[in-house]
């Protein structure tokens, strides 16, 4: 597996094979990265912009990838950072805090033509939007993407213990909201 990855990364770095290898990479990971980004930024058009920026960043920085982690977690980290930078920039342009911007997005989901959820799904999204940023990311990755703590820990560069605490707090808050 590690060897397979090294060969693929070599192909991504070789100017002769880079384009072909990159096409393969996009084809392999586009959906997973898109859905990860979409759950963070909520809107399709925003996710479309961020997923493009993510792949551009991957293409530009593949030489800087030190292979300490898997390619997959490295790309997820870029996608997460790009999403957070995007939210930060959009929110600051509107004079809002990041969480206020996300909450506004969640409140507008019912009018979004690319949101097919029912009232329960909408309520859940609104509650997730109210969580602090770190808890929101962890909740999305754990609950919706069903990722294990070790992988999330590598992506977010946070200890497993801290992630468990974040997820526990997030679930508790959502449960409390649901019971009210």
């Amino acid at each position: 597996m590690q060897n397979e990855q090294s060969i693929f990364i070599k192909a991504l770095r070789d100017p002769l094979t880079k384009e072909e290898a990159f096409k393969k990479l996009v084809s392999e990971y586009k959906e997973r990265l898109y859905w990860h980004i979409r759950k963070l930024v909520l809107d399709h058009d925003d996710a479309h912009d961020v997923v493009q920026n993510t792949f551009i960043k991957i293409h530009l920085n593949i030489d800087k990838f030190r292979e300490n982690s898997s390619l997959y977690t490295w790309m997820y980290r870029i996608a997460t950072n790009e999403s957070l930078n995007f939210i930060n920039s959009k929110a600051s342009k509107m004079g809002l805090q990041n969480q206020e911007w996300i909450e506004a997005k969640a409140n507008g989901l019912m009018a979004d033509s690319y949101f097919d959820g029912d009232q329960a799904a909408l309520k859940l999204q609104k509650m997730v939007a109210q969580l602090p940023e770190k808890q929101r990311i962890v909740f999305n990755m754990k609950y919706f993407d069903n990722m294990n703590y070790e992988t999330i820990s590598e992506i977010l560069d946070t200890s497993v213990g801290a992630l468990k605490a974040s997820y526990h707090h997030a679930v508790k808050k959502i449960k409390n909201e649901l019971n009210d």
């Binding site: 096409k23 996009v26 586009k30 898109y34 859905w35 493009q52 097919d116 959820g117 029912d118």
Partner: peptide
């Protein structure tokens, strides 16, 4: 994904995404 994910995309979005990214790269 199908049960918990309430989000959707335009039709054939992922089929076209490769080309969009390729175009962005060539512009870049």
């Amino acid at each position: 994904i199908s049960k918990l994910n309430p989000f959707s995309t335009p039709e054939n979005y992922f089929e076209q995404l490769d080309e969009v990214i390729e175009q962005r790269l060539s512009i870049n």
